[in-house]
């Protein structure tokens, strides 16, 4: 079977800003493909081109075998799109929104019910509530239901969990897993690394360029250098101190700790840990705890971003 999405050297400029710079990737049938990158990386622009809302300046893209520029009408009836911001009618009720989008696609809620049922069942007690009176998680479920009600062959989800609580986020990804098991391919973007892990494959995107396309595990493995994690009370002080350390290759703030790599290629993780501990101790950070760890996607992302910048 051919790929459901094929993107080749796609480029989009807004004035002097290059939002997409020669982006290429494919999405296979039945695959959950994640676009992972910070805000402003070009994720939404890519979605808008693939859903035929924007015209690209260069390159080609096909969705379900249709060219996004020439055959946009053929694409529109066959895909579901859930944009990053809530885009349903706030003054219509839950049921009215769903019925409306079903009607627009020339179908009914009944016909599409099987597909939306797992998501929509939780919304049904609130079917007469106005959409603007729903909580963030509920809004997101309604938006997903509306994007699915016409039984699309491909689903586009642009940052579907932004502004949603952690529990709802996990639930949402459980729903996506169910949809995937029914064979629906999904292109989803996210700024969260933990969500990236739940994709079949991911593309790291930064400043309009793809830094790598692979499975989450393989992306993590691209990071080959020994990595140590440093915890302590004065993280910022340690960060500044380590930047002055002569053997530092990289040091980054990761939540409540620092991740550090060494510039000497032949040292093991334990050796580096010992070296860093004594360095920090010499600088007066006596409570620093240093241990070697396995790198994650985020480490790969940071190092890919750094090598891109260099």
């Amino acid at each position: 079977m051919t790929n459901v999405i094929e993107v080749h050297e796609l480029t989009k400029r807004f004035g002097s800003v290059t939002a997409l710079d020669g982006v290429s990737f494919d999405v296979a049938p039945g695959e959950v493909f994640g676009l992972v990158g910070p805000d402003g990386a070009g994720k939404t622009t890519l979605f808008r081109i693939l859903t035929s809302l924007l015209l690209p300046d260069g390159g080609q893209a096909t969705v379900l075998g249709c060219n996004v520029v020439k055959d946009h009408w053929a694409i529109r009836a066959r895909v579901g799109y859930m944009p990053g911001s809530f885009s349903l009618y706030p003054d219509l009720s839950v049921a009215e929104n769903l019925e409306f989008f079903a009607a627009v696609f020339g179908t009914t809620v009944k016909e599409g019910y099987e597909l939306i049922a797992p998501v929509y069942r939780q919304l049904e007690p609130f079917r007469d509530r106005r959409a603007d009176a729903l909580s963030g998680g509920m809004k997101q479920k309604l938006a997903l239901s509306c994007a699915l009600v016409h039984r699309p062959e491909l689903l586009f989800l642009d940052e579907p969990t932004t502004g949603v609580d952690a529990v709802s986020r996990r639930e949402f990804w459980d729903h996506l897993a169910v949809l995937k098991s029914s064979g629906l391919p999904i292109l989803v973007s996210t700024p969260y690394m933990d969500e990236a892990l739940r994709c079949d494959r991911i593309a790291l995107i930064h400043d309009g360029r793809l830094l790598g396309v692979d499975t989450p595990a393989a992306i993590g493995k691209r990071f080959t250098r020994p990595l140590v994690r440093i915890a302590g009370s004065d993280r910022y002080g340690m960060l500044c101190a380590l930047r002055e350390h002569e053997h530092t290759a990289s040091v980054n703030l990761f939540g409540d700790s620092l991740h550090y790599t060494d510039s000497r290629p032949d040292l093991s993780g334990d050796e580096i840990a010992r070296d860093v501990t004594s360095f920090l101790d010499g600088r007066g950070f006596s409570d620093a705890r240093v241990e070697p760890i396995e790198p994650g996607i985020e480490d790969s992302f940071m190092s890919l971003m750094a090598s891109e910048a260099a």
């Binding site: 799109y81 706030p90 696609f105």
Partner: peptide, 13 residues
């Protein structure tokens, strides 16, 4: 403003 215009654009409407 609400974004529904885009949403409607990506329909066969």
């Amino acid at each position: 403003e609400v974004g529904t215009l885009d949403q409607l654009t990506i329909t066969p409407l």
